[in-house]
């Protein structure tokens, strides 16, 4: 059965990142925003974990917490742990690592591609500079060698004639090319883990397909672990081995892609799938879309009990009273629903 094969495969993958019960809260004037509130995730070598969820569900904050890139004045990690396993198999506690140690991890081990390439590229430096600089700092290359490596990287991410592009400034490039440059910068340190935060959201489908193919190829070549953040479930199927579905600051379902998308065990996952416009059915009839009633909860005052209960078609009294925990559906598939065994999804 493919199910058990997959379980074996997953177990055999050496873990790279393991996040347990992470809580990242923002202290704002209006109150505490519990942007990430009990998130657990893990990803192994050569594996891609997709993180999906609607806008504001906490996907980016999870990634930024792992990278320790959130400002300390407003953002507080109030609970949980983040463990990274380096190339030598040594476990590193990222939350308690010194700033210098973390700087080294970001230069050598974990890289992130950000949601908006324009705001994360520096407008006053050439792209060649921005790719070569981390190579010089972290890998001790000389100026000329670093430039050579930058050219190589640009070629690898599919920029033809990189010699004519390397001295360009970000604003001189198209959106698709900027995203490739972001990928080149991320790969410069040959990371063990790549966190890609909506790397194709702003791009045309054609360019998106190019970037997706590129990421898949580079990941396979390097046996990299990847966390692929997206709000597009259709992309999950194309790129990921496993998927974590987030709702209102928590992971509500996690497991192998074909299990979670094929046989969802959480009403929210099921509801998200029903929102996707799909091909017509066998009779050529247009399928009716089923929007999720209501709106995402206010992050300042999330509902009691199951956070999805005001919008859930299966909500019962118990869902208002008690907080669901993640429960195992199979050995590697979990759901955060009190009624998953009773409801027919």
């Amino acid at each position: 059965m493919p199910l058990t094969e997959q379980a074996v495969e997953t177990a055999a993958r050496r873990p790279v990142l393991s996040v347990q019960d992470l809580k990242t809260h923002f202290m704002t004037d209006a109150g505490i925003i519990k942007a990430v509130n009990g998130v657990s995730l893990s990803v192994g070598e050569g594996e891609t974990l997709a993180v999906v969820g609607e806008s504001g569900s906490g996907k980016s904050v999870t990634g930024l917490t792992v990278m320790r890139l959130l400002g300390r004045t407003t953002a507080r990690v109030v609970g949980g742990s983040i463990e990274f396993v380096d190339r030598d198999g040594k476990a590193i506690d990222l939350l308690n690592l010194s700033d210098m140690g973390m700087e080294k991890v970001r230069g050598h081990d974990i890289a992130m591609i950000f949601q908006d390439p324009m705001s994360s590229l520096n407008p006053v430096f050439t792209i060649g500079n921005q790719i070569a600089e981390p190579i010089r700092i972290h890998q001790g290359y000389g100026k000329k060698e670093a430039r050579g490596k930058a050219l190589d990287l640009l070629r690898q991410v599919g920029i033809s004639d990189p010699e004519s592009r390397i001295d360009s400034y970000p604003h001189q490039l198209s959106g698709g090319m900027r995203q490739r440059v972001m990928i080149a910068i991320a790969l410069a340190c040959d990371p063990r883990l790549l966190i890609a935060d909506e790397p194709t959201t702003a791009l045309d489908v054609t360019i998106q397909a190019q970037i997706m193919a590129l990421l898949k190829q580079l990941q396979a070549e390097r046996n990299m672990a990847m966390i692929f953040v997206t709000h597009d479930l259709k992309l999950v199927d194309e790129i990921a081995d496993r998927v974590a579905v987030m709702y209102a600051s928590q992971v509500v379902e996690e497991g192998p892609v074909d299990q979670v998308l094929g046989h969802p065990r959480h009403p929210y996952t099921k509801a998200l799938l029903e929102c996707i416009p799909s091909r017509r059915d066998a009779q050529g009839e247009r399928r009716q879309l089923h929007p999720i009633p209501g709106t995402l909860p206010n992050p300042l005052s999330p509902p009691s009990g199951c956070r999805f209960h005001p919008r859930c078609g299966f909500a019962a009294d118990i869902c208002i009273a008690s907080d669901p925990e993640l429960e195992a559906v199979t050995s590697d598939h979990v759901t955060r629903c009190l009624r998953w065994q009773e409801v027919a999804l």
């Binding site: 033809s160 489908v205 054609t206 998106q208 397909a209 190019q210 193919a213 597009d232 996707i276």
Partner: peptide, 21 residues
């Protein structure tokens, strides 16, 4: 045909990924 193949979830066999922009 290329647009349909590039679109996620539309056609699973990606025969031609359009190159360039």
């Amino acid at each position: 045909a290329a647009l349909l193949q590039a679109a996620p979830g539309m056609i699973s066999v990606k025969k031609h990924i359009l190159k360039g922009e």
